[in-house]
């Protein structure tokens, strides 16, 4: 609904009510969202830029950044491939159990992050299903990088698929059918018609998926074992520093994550403005 001509000027009681509602909403947004965000940056620079720079240049901080990047670099592409495959199957074919598949894709959104980590401990941990076998072959999953990746993959699994399914549903399959009738092979159809049509939605999904992958705390905290320099991602580093009363250090790393969040929000908003019609209508993107 864009601006519609008002038929008559508003009376003052109504204008007052409007003003009160707007002020209430904005005060809430400021106190509840803007203030915590500001706190992060203020606390990070409480002892000046020098302390901030030093805090993020410590080797643990650097290795946490590297690990966070590594985990996201593995988890995001995995879920992109999955998301495209799942969306293709869900929107282009009729089959029994489709609703169940849809529910399964959404499932990770309604599972507590702690449980998301726990299930992998129960699979691969020392007392888990595959624990003894893994130990015999000297393969470490829990308290090691593979565990972090698995937990992150689980948590971020729905993002890309959830973004693509409604869009591909609404686009329909006519263009792809047209490509087939015109003689395109399966992959030609995919790369020349399907992919260009979903590119912005895909990128949007990747953006949200990546933000979550880099910021995930609960699930990775359970499988990480908190080994400094080896299995601590940035959010875990924040927690450890905070618990050691290294507030500036904690907030310094946290400010980098907050910056990432702001960047994500900015790009996301920009994409919604520019390519809104090529994205799915926005249901909230989960956690």
């Amino acid at each position: 609904m864009t601006s519609r001509l008002r038929r008559r000027p508003l009376g003052w009681p109504r204008r007052l009510a409007r003003l009160v509602l707007i002020v209430l909403a904005l005060v809430f947004l400021l106190l509840f969202l803007v203030l915590p965000l500001t706190t992060v940056f203020i606390e990070a620079f409480r002892q000046g830029v020098g302390a901030f720079v030093e805090a993020i240049r410590q080797p643990e901080a650097l290795s946490a950044m590297r690990l966070t990047l590594l985990v996201a670099t593995i988890a995001v592409p995995l879920n992109v491939v999955f998301g495209v495959a799942a969306a293709w199957a869900m929107t282009r074919f009729q089959f029994r159990g489709k609703a169940f598949l849809g529910a399964l894709i959404d499932l990770p959104f309604s599972v507590s992050p702690v449980i998301s980590g726990l299930i992998y401990v129960l699979m691969f941990g020392a007392q888990g299903w595959f624990g003894p076998w893994l130990e015999r072959h000297d393969i470490k999953i829990i308290f090691a990088v593979p565990g972090l990746v698995l937990a992150t993959v689980f948590i971020t699994l729905p993002f890309v698929a959830r973004e693509l399914i409604p869009l591909m549903e609404s686009q329909g399959s006519e263009e792809e059918e047209a490509a087939r009738v015109l003689g395109a092979s399966g992959w030609q159809m995919f790369f020349r018609v399907t992919l260009p049509n979903i590119r912005w939605a895909l990128l949007y999904g990747v953006l949200l998926c990546n933000a979550r992958a880099m910021g995930e705390f609960g699930a990775v905290s359970v499988v990480s074992g908190h080994i400094r320099g080896l299995t601590t991602t940035m959010p875990l580093e924040v927690e450890m520093r905070y618990n050691e009363y290294d507030y500036v250090g904690a907030f310094a790393v946290a400010s980098l994550l907050a910056l990432l969040a702001l960047l994500t929000l900015g790009i996301k908003t920009l994409m919604e403005w520019r390519y809104g019609d090529e994205l799915a209508t926005h249901a909230p993107g989960g956690h």
Binding site: L29, L33, T39, V40, P235, L236, V238, L257, L265
Partner: peptide
């Protein structure tokens, strides 16, 4: 403000927690 509504989605929970 509209864009900011999504902040709790985007901000890592640990960061929100300590803030």
């Amino acid at each position: 403000f509209d864009a900011l509504v999504d902040l709790p989605f985007a901000l890592p929970t640990a960061v929100a927690g300590i803030a």
